[in-house]
Write a protein that binds this DNA or RNA. Structure first.
Length: 282
DNA sequence: CAGGCTACCTGCCCGC
DNA sequence: TGCGGGCAGGTAGCCT
């Protein structure tokens, strides 16, 4: 479940099941899901065995289990799931890693495409060093809106590219970028350096609002790939105004939503509400 | 720093 | 029915 709301849904679900529990044993079913762990999967499982889980934290789309001072850092990639299962439940087709807990339950990392993965981060409980370059996300109480505005306007790039940059603001992916831009009436190619202060303020407010709203509805799911720890889908897809809406009437003006290829992916936008800029500005 | 491209993977859907 | 191409919510790394 890729973007911030979906990852937060997973974090909340994990926290309710694993905090206070001990990892009895970790099992790696596919070594490709253990990432950046040069010592190999055996060292990874050794590092997790008999460790008590003290918390579950998140920054942007990364989440990590806190094990005292250390951490198990997880990214769901495009297709990762964290499922709470009983040991006798049949193995999922794409089961990659299992954590056996001392209450008899299992945390199962299921990931079809293996763009996600886990790694052990020594001393990483507060913030794993591997993701120190990731900016705070807008749901973080310490997110600095003024700093974001200053850094955004210093960029010389398109506004969508900027808000997808996890080093500037984290947690935003393709769905919520398009939704926030639609709400803000901004075209994805608008130059960051030519945005008016009011536009930046509106954009940040909309990024925050759309992700909080999606979180309140359990995230966005188009299919069974995006589910919480109990295998349930969120229903924010019903509230989407731009993403995936090609050809459907814009909820504000009725003009058909368009789809462009941009950054090797799709961008959805209303040609009337979000007019394409000339040279990045109007 | 900007940004284009590729790679990493699997599976589904479409047209032929 | 099979095959090829395009598509999918992400990130890292290389090159210019």
């Amino acid at each position: 479940m890729p973007e911030l709301p979906e990852v937060e849904v997973v974090r909340l679900g994990l926290a309710s099941h694993v905090v206070g529990r001990t990892i009895v044993k970790a099992t790696v079913h596919d070594v490709r899901s253990v990432r950046r762990h040069l010592a190999g999967p055996t060292d990874f499982t050794d590092a997790l065995a008999s460790r008590a889980v003290t918390g579950v934290a998140r920054r942007g789309k990364y989440l990590w289990l806190q094990l005292g001072d250390d951490a198990v850092l997880c990214h769901l990639g495009m297709s990762g799931q964290m499922l709470m299962q009983r040991p006798d439940a049949p193995a999922e087709k794409h089961l990659r890693i299992t954590l056996d807990l001392d209450d008899g339950m299992q945390v199962r990392f299921v990931d079809q495409r293996i763009f996600g993965g886990m790694m052990f981060s020594p001393g990483g409980a507060e913030l794993p060093a591997e993701i120190a370059h990731i900016a705070r996300d807008p749901l973080d109480p310490l997110f600095d809106a003024d700093e974001f505005r200053v850094r955004l306007k210093k960029r010389q790039t398109g506004v969508k590219r900027a808000i997808l940059d996890q080093g500037l603001i984290s947690g935003v992916g393709n769905i919520y970028a398009d939704e926030a831009l639609w709400r803000s009436k901004l075209h994805y190619a608008r130059d960051t350096c030519h945005l008016r202060s009011a536009e930046v303020t509106t954009l940040l407010a909309n990024v925050t609002e759309v992700m909080e709203s999606a979180l309140g509805q359990g995230g966005t799911s188009f299919d069974a790939l995006y589910v919480n720890v109990n295998g349930e889908s969120g229903y924010f897809d019903r509230s989407l105004n731009a993403y995936g809406q090609e050809g459907l009437p814009c909820a504000r003006c009725g003009t058909p939503i368009r789809r462009d290829a941009f950054m090797n992916r799709s961008s959805y936008w209303c040609p009337v509400c979000q007019p394409r800029p000339r040279n990045g500005r109007f």
